[in-house]
Design a protein around this nucleic acid. Sequence first.
RNA 1: GCCACCCUAGCUCAGUUGGGAGAGCAACUGAUUCGUAAUCAGUAGGUCGCCGGUUCGAGUCCGGCGGGUGGCUCCA
Length: 708
Amino acid sequence: MPEITLPDGSVKTFPGPVTAAEVAASIGAGLAKAALGCRVDGRLRDLSTRLEADCRLELVTEKKRSGELDPDAIWLLRHSAAHVMAEAIIKLVPGVELVYGPPVENGFFYDLRLPEGLALSSNEFAAIEQEMAGVIAADRPFRRVELDAEAGLARVRAERNKYKIDNAERALSGHRHDAREAEAPDAPQVTLSFYATGEPGRDFEDLCGGPHLPSTGRIGAFKLMSLASSYWHGDADSDRLLRVYGTAFFRKEDLASHLERLDEARRRDHRVIGQRQRLFVIDELVGQGLVLWTPEGSILRQELQSFISTELTRQGYKQVFTPHIGKLGLYRQSGHYPYYIDSQYPPLVERETTEALAEEGASCAELTRRLTTGEVDGYLLKPMNCPHHIRIFASRPHSYRDLPVRLAEFGTVYRWEQSGELNGMVRVRGFTQDDAHLFCSEDQVADEIRGCLGLVRTVLGTLGLDSYRVRVGLRDLDSGKYTGSADVWDKAEEACRAAARTLGVPFTEEPGEAAFYGPKIDFVVRDAIGREWQLGTVQVDYNLPERFDLSYVGRDNQKHRPVMIHRAPFGSMERFCGVLIEHFAGAFPTWLAPEQVRVLPVAERSAAYAAQVHAALREAGVRAVLDDSDERLQGRIRDAAEERVPYMAIVGPRDAEAGTVSVRARGIQKDLGALPLDDFVAAVAAEIATRGARRVTERFEAAPAAVS
RNA sequence: GCCACCCUAGCUCAGUUGGGAGAGCAACUGAUUCGUAAUCAGUAGGUCGCCGGUUCGAGUCCGGCGGGUGGCUCCA
C-alpha cells in the first residue's frame, strides 16, 4: 500500500502499486496530460514507472511549478529524440551499428558505426528528418523492457553489435558512461533495460537505461545539426565513430529561437567580423595559426596593451623585452624541453651541426636524443616567457627589500597546437601573452595574487565584461605528480582561495586542476551573449625558482628562495581581442575603435569645411576619416553605420555657417543634432580619454533635439 | 593528429545528368552635388585551392597534397 509524498507535502495512499502516470491522473487530467516523466526520491524515471513502495514523487512537466523550464523535461525530450533519430538512420542506412546516444547541452547526438564503405553526409539530413517526423507523427509510446542480466546480455550478444555489448557489460559492472542519476557511477545494475519506440518486438528497440518521454508525439520540434567524428570511449587509438548531432524542443518557437541564437553567434564570429572589418588575417603562406594583425586590428591591440600597461605601471610592474627564441639548455633547465616536446615547434639547430650529423649518418631519432641530453644544442622558439624573465631576475642580486620584483612583458610565445585545434584568433600557434612574473617572498603571495585580481577587475570592468567567475585549481591529493612540500602547497592553495574570496565573484574549487608546480586561478568571462571564455590565469610556482636556484638575501642576511607567480590575466592578445570582437559584435567602444569618427560632407560645396573638421579631430588625437566620395549622403551614412564607426560628423552649409557639426552616434538611427565643432572635438576626446566613462551622447541627453 | 564536410572574382554565393565560367556587393571610369541607412551608367576582374589521373572533352568523376569548417582528442 504505497504512500506517495508529493512536492507540496501532501500524501496519497494507493491500495496497490500504481504508475506515476496514474498518480498524475488521480491529481488531475491536466497534469496527466502534461506529465512527461517523474522523479522518484529524486531520481528521474519514466512516467510509466510502477511505484510499489513509499516514495517521494515529483511529476516532471515541461515547466516547473515556479514557471521555469525543468531541465529534466528537456533531457527526456532530447534523449527520446536521439532514439527516434537512431531509428530513422537505421531504416535509411541498413547495417549501421548504434553506439551511444545521449542528450547534451544544446541537443543530443548519436554515435554510430557505418558499414564499411558507406558514408553519411548532411545531404541526407532531410531524408532522416522526414523519417523522424513520421515516427513522431505516429506518436508511438516508449516502452521499457527489463531483462535480468543474463537474458539481457544474451539478447545484446545476439545482435552482434560489439559496442552495445560493451555498453551492456559496462552497465552491469557499474561503468555507465551515460550515467545521469546520482546513484549511478559505481552502482552496478542487476538488470538491463531496452526501450522500444512503440511495440516491443515489432518496433525499433535499443539498449538503454532510460528514462524516456511517454511517447514520440511529445517531441514538438527537432532538427539535425551536424556530423562529426568521435572515438569510441574517447580513445584516439580505438574505433572511429560517426557522431550525428541534433537538437529538439517542445515547441517550434523554441527551436526557432535556438537557431536564431546560433545565427547571432555566427554573426558575431570574430573570424567573420575580423574579415569584414579587416582586423586580422591568417595567411596560408605564412602558416596555420599565425595571426597577421592589420593596421585596423593593430590599433585595437595597441589600445588594449597601452591600457593594460598603464595599469601595470600603476601597480609597480617593470616592463621588459626578451627575444622570441632561447637556447635549448634554458628550456631543459626549466623543464619545458623535453617535457612538452609535442607542443613545441621543433628546435633550430645550427647549420654546421646539421651537416656534421648528416655526414655521420645520424638518424632523426638520434638527433632528438642528443638534443634531449644536450650533446647537441640548438635554439627553441619560446613556448613560455618565464625562463627569460627568470634570467633577468637572476642577473643581479636581490635583497628582501627589492621584493616583490614584478617583470611584465607582452611576450610572444609559440606552441605547436594540433591543427584541428586551431580556431581564428582564439586558438593559435603564435601568440602574445600579457605576461608577468612576480618574484616574492612566501608571505607576499596572497597580496600579489590579490593585486593580479584587482588588475583583472579594472580591465574587464572597463570593457563591460562584468560577468565572470573564477576557478581555483587545486592539487589532487591522491596524485604524486606535484613538486613541493605539502605545507607549502597548503599555504599556496589557501592564498589562492583567500584571494578568490575577496574578488566578490563566484568561484569554484577544482581539485586536480593545479599546474604541477602550484595552484592556479583561472578567469572565465561571460560575453554579451552568454558564452563563457577562459582567458587568463594566475599560477603560484615553487618549482622554477628551485630549478634555477633563485635567491634573495633576507633580513637575516641569509639566502632565501623566492616564490614565483606567473600571471597572464587576459591570456593572450590574440584570444582576448577575438573574444572582444565577439563581445562587442565589432561595435567597439570609441577608445578601442580603429576609426572613431567619420566626417561626411553633405555635398562637395562643404568639402573645405569638412576638411577643417577632419583636421581638428586629428589634431586632437581622434582617429577620424573623411569620406568625401561623391556617393550620396545616405549611402555614405550606411557605409559608416555598417562599418560600426562610433560617430559620424555630418557637415553641410548650415554647419559651415554656424561652425557646428551634426552628430550621429552608432546605434541611434537619427540625427542627434548639432554641436559647436570645438565642443564636439572635446567631447570625443573626453570619451576616449575616459574610456567611455563620459560620452558624446551625454551632450544630447540634457536637451534632446535642441538643434534640428 | 583523427573523422566528416567544404574550397568558383577582393567579399558573399549560383553553376542542373561531364560539353559556352555567372550574379550581387566591393574596385575602377564617367555622369550626378544631393542635409541623415544603397544615385545612375559603363569597365575591368577567374590557372574554378594545387598536382596528377580517367575521358574526344573535367569547375563537375577518381587519387594525392594544401587550406578551412564542425566535432573528437589536446591545451604548460
